Simulated assay, not measured.
Amino acid sequence: MPRVRELEVFRVALPFGRRSESLLVKLTDYAGMTGWGEALAPQPKTWSRLEESLGALLVGVDWEHPDAVPGTDSAVDMACWDLWTRMRGVPLAHAVGGTRTSLMATVRLEPDKSVEHLVTRVNQQVCAGYGHVTLDIRPGWDVEPVRAVRAAYPALTLAVDGDGSYTDGGQLVALDSYGIEVIERPFPVTDVDAHATLQDQVAAAVAVEVRSTAELDDYLTLRAARVLLLRPTAFPSLTEARRAHDRAAAAGWDIQCAGGQGAGLARAATVALASLPGCTLACDVTQPPRQNQIVTPIVGAVAGVIAVPLTQPGLGHTIDEDRVRRMAKDHFQA
């Protein structure tokens, strides 16, 4: 039965992105075993809430299972799972029900300075072993780049990601003639009807990213998509993320796990969830640069394949704690 002797929380500055910050949680039990978790781009009040309540919640308290720890957020929940599975000597992937030993990866390419340069970048990724590419699209940067990439690579599996930037589905319908596998996040997640209309108009699967099973249920009811874009750190707990996986899979949806941001811990949790049987689509843990991670081995793809760590317990990675402390902008201990 875990009992936390000490906890530490680090606010870590990451050398990339517009919201380049993570909160890292470290739990240490009375035997010296540790568990780590990560929250990406935390809200301003998250730090003060953890500082005021986390110590009383965890230090010296016995708990049987991570689900028994009340009132946690994604970082604390992840740290509890990491500690719990390390104590039992089992990989996190197995503990959540994963069955895969390796995952196909997609590589994500942002809008470029020219269509020609984008095609060159796609060529670099194909030569590196990727058979699946996700193109970030926006109004005004959609049909032309997709047409050019498809012309250059007729057999390449392509997905596009609108990041909720569209209000009209016309250009997205036009993309369907280029053999797109998935149209990810075309509209704001609150616009269920727009997703449903688009899914009726295209052969490609529409993918939606939700943050709760309640949001997912709205899409399932209206058959407004066919793919769940599952980002584990967007849910309050790994159990809740697993519950969303189960509901989507039961409805016949495909599932893609995504989580490329952060310092490496969130990526590791993404890989663990992506080993679940319903996660049939390519996993997205390719961004940002691999050298910015604080875990060993780093989480990423080799020749388009991601290994699921099954020889080490917990998240399956060693934390460079010295680097964490150097990167920390703030820190508290209880």
Rank of each mutant, 00 (worst) to 15 (best):
A128P: 08
R49K: 07
V302G: 11
V299G: 02
D320E: 11
R86L: 02
H245Y: 09
G314K: 05
K113E: 13
R243L: 07
H195N: 14
P111N: 13
D200H: 14
T34G: 03
A93G: 05
A269H: 05
F187E: 01
L158M: 11
A250V: 06
G262K: 05
V119S: 09
L158N: 01
T34L: 02
R11Q: 15
H117Q: 13
A148T: 10
R108N: 11
L220W: 06
A241D: 08
V61K: 10
S177P: 14
L109I: 15
G164L: 06
A250F: 05
Q43F: 08
D136L: 13
P232G: 02
V173A: 06
T106G: 08
V76D: 00
I180A: 04
G131H: 10
L238W: 06
A155S: 13
P309F: 04
A155D: 14
E64F: 09
P289A: 08
R121C: 10
D161T: 04
A282G: 08
P145A: 07
A194H: 01
A249Q: 11
P66A: 06
D142Q: 09
S237R: 06
G97S: 09
T286W: 07
P309N: 04
D218C: 09
V182S: 01
A204P: 03
Y166S: 09
Q124Y: 04
W63Q: 04
T233R: 09
C127M: 10
S74G: 12
L135Y: 03
T72R: 07
T233M: 14
